[in-house]
């Protein structure tokens, strides 16, 4: 402390100089219109630059939250689209019991947001691990979706985590339908390309073309009807020759999955 005081006493003329210079420069900026406007204009440029950088950093820090919100919004909007489609069908006097059931099941869904904390994509029976469990309301048998489509079905639950059987799993069989025509089939992954799955048991008289959309059907107790699954890229024949085997380009890229939603069917 004494050495600090000694130093200050020796350099007191520096302090006086800095103080008086500071006062003079303040007078220059505040007392002269031209210098003041130049100073504050340049200061605004600097401040705007610093605030811009701060916003960029904060935006980056809030990205996980933004991603989660976007995923939730995507799923909700898909539900709304299906709802509106059902309403349109009703107004076009083309409503059926199936359509009404689909609209009703959509309204009963709650969603639990989750993050994928582990996954496998290379084996024949792939699974995912999410960071939500029993304590968060997740239960076995619940469907898992993401902003672009379906992900899988919950198979095992612990208090804070859950294991999900991915749609890229040889045990997975999800009831789907061809959008517009309503013909039902079973989505089943055969292994190999993780962006392509097959839809079997499509009746041979079904009107199907390459490019048609495949969505979840109302026969699924796990997923709300109308969720986009993928698009038909090739039409083949089942091994038994009695039905179509549709090759479906999946809308969900399992390798890049991060934010998902667990569907609670009330």
């Amino acid at each position: 402390m004494r050495s600090v005081i000694t130093f200050l006493v020796r350099k007191v003329h520096w302090l006086v100089f800095l103080l008086l210079e500071g006062v003079s420069l303040t007078l220059v900026v505040r007392g002269n219109h031209y210098q003041g406007s130049v100073f504050f204009t340049q200061a605004n440029v600097v401040v705007a630059g610093v605030q811009g950088m701060e916003r960029k950093l904060l935006r980056y820090a809030y990205m996980p939250e933004v991603n989660r919100e976007l995923t939730e919004r995507n799923v909700i909007m898909q539900k709304q689209i299906a709802d509106l489609r059902a309403a349109l069908a009703r107004l076009s006097h083309d409503s059926t019991e199936t359509e009404r059931m689909m609209a009703d099941s959509l309204r009963r869904c709650d969603l639990i947001s989750a993050k994928v904390i582990g996954r496998s994509i290379r084996s024949l029976d792939n699974t995912l691990t999410i960071d939500r469990g029993k304590d968060d309301g997740v239960a076995e048998g619940m469907g898992v979706v993401c902003g672009t489509g379906i992900v899988g079905i919950v198979t095992r639950v612990t208090p804070h985590h859950a294991e999900v059987m991915s749609i890229l799993n040889s045990q997975s069989n999800i009831t789907c339908r061809i959008r517009g025509s309503g013909y039902i089939g079973y989505l089943h992954w055969q292994g190999g390309n993780m962006l392509v799955s097959t839809m079997d048991d499509v009746p041979p008289h079904a009107r199907v073309r390459v490019g048609m959309a495949i969505e979840t059907s109302n026969y699924s107790q796990v997923f709300p009807a109308g969720l986009f699954v993928g698009r038909v890229i090739r039409i083949g024949t089942a091994p038994d020759g009695l039905s179509f085997r549709l090759f479906v380009q999946l809308s969900t890229d399992m390798a890049r999955l991060d934010d998902v939603m667990v569907v609670k069917n009330n």
Binding site: F17, S24, L25, T26, L27, G31
Partner: peptide, 22 residues
């Protein structure tokens, strides 16, 4: 500062002379 008061240039003369004195 007194010079500035008469010249209407607040702070300019004071700053320059303070620096020269330092």
């Amino acid at each position: 500062l007194i010079q500035d008061m008469f010249a209407g240039t607040p702070g300019i003369g004071a700053s320059a002379l303070t620096f020269a004195a330092f």
